[in-house]
Computed example of a mutant assay.
Amino acid sequence: MIYVISDLHGYPFVKFLELLNKANFSSDDYLFILGDVIDRGMYGTEYLKWLLYQENVELLLGNHEAMLLSCSFLFEEVNEENLRNLTPESLELLANWKDNGAKWTLEGFYTMEQDDRISIIEYLREAPLYEIVSVKNQDFLLTHSGLKNFDIKKKLSEYTANDFLWNRPKLSDRYYDDIKTVFGHSPTFMYGKEYSGKIIKTDTWINIDVGAGYGYSPILLRIDDMKEFSL
């Protein structure tokens, strides 16, 4: 069975494990997390440390992990002196990340062993922008935010990283007719109160970011049968 979840944003890690248990997730299954396990909530670094040792869980890069990587200069050695010696360009990158909820992630890195910091940065640098999986003759494109500047004639290799990381699709947007696109990034409550805390499904895409970073409970989706699991 293949499961997908997105935008956990530091959601309590113990509850996340309870959610996997409720879905009977096992070593025979596979989980794709479609980016943004960090920031806004206080448990993001717990996910990062856990992911290092999971053989059947894969993190796709989210825009928040990309912001972390843009500030990786901090993590060679995280200390106050490094923060004082940042260049204007580095300060701008850090300010942007902090404006997007980096507080808890930075604190987590402060208390982490250096070897763990290095391992996490290396892991995130290898995280893919998208994956394609097939289940019961249905193909799925998994990515963080859908596809910005979508063109049916475009190859996936022709999209930029920002196209995968920072897109905000409209309800009327269409993607591939023969491939279901699954993404997060845009909390579903942004599309109207009637979608609050719910997955949105259209005939060409599925948005699974139900707003865990804003107090909603995340939903785990099993794409084999489209069953949803929540606490």
Rank of each mutant, 00 (worst) to 15 (best):
I2D: 09
V4L: 05
I5Q: 04
H9I: 09
G10L: 10
Y11I: 14
V14A: 14
F16P: 04
E18N: 14
D29P: 07
L34E: 10
L34A: 07
D36A: 10
V37G: 00
R40C: 00
R40Q: 13
G44S: 11
G44M: 02
W50V: 07
L51Q: 04
V57I: 15
V57G: 05
L60T: 08
N63R: 02
N63Y: 05
M67Q: 12
L68R: 11
L69Q: 04
C71F: 03
N79S: 08
N82T: 15
L83K: 14
N96Y: 04
K98F: 01
W104E: 12
T105I: 05
Y110A: 09
Q114R: 14
D115E: 15
E122C: 09
Y123K: 15
R125V: 09
P128L: 13
V135T: 11
N137I: 03
F140C: 08
D151Q: 09
S157H: 09
L165D: 03
K170T: 08
R174G: 06
T181V: 14
T188Q: 06
Y195G: 01
W205L: 02
N207K: 02
V210Q: 03
A212K: 00
Y216P: 06
L220R: 02
L220D: 03
L221S: 04
R222G: 09
D224S: 13
D225W: 06
K227V: 15
S230A: 07
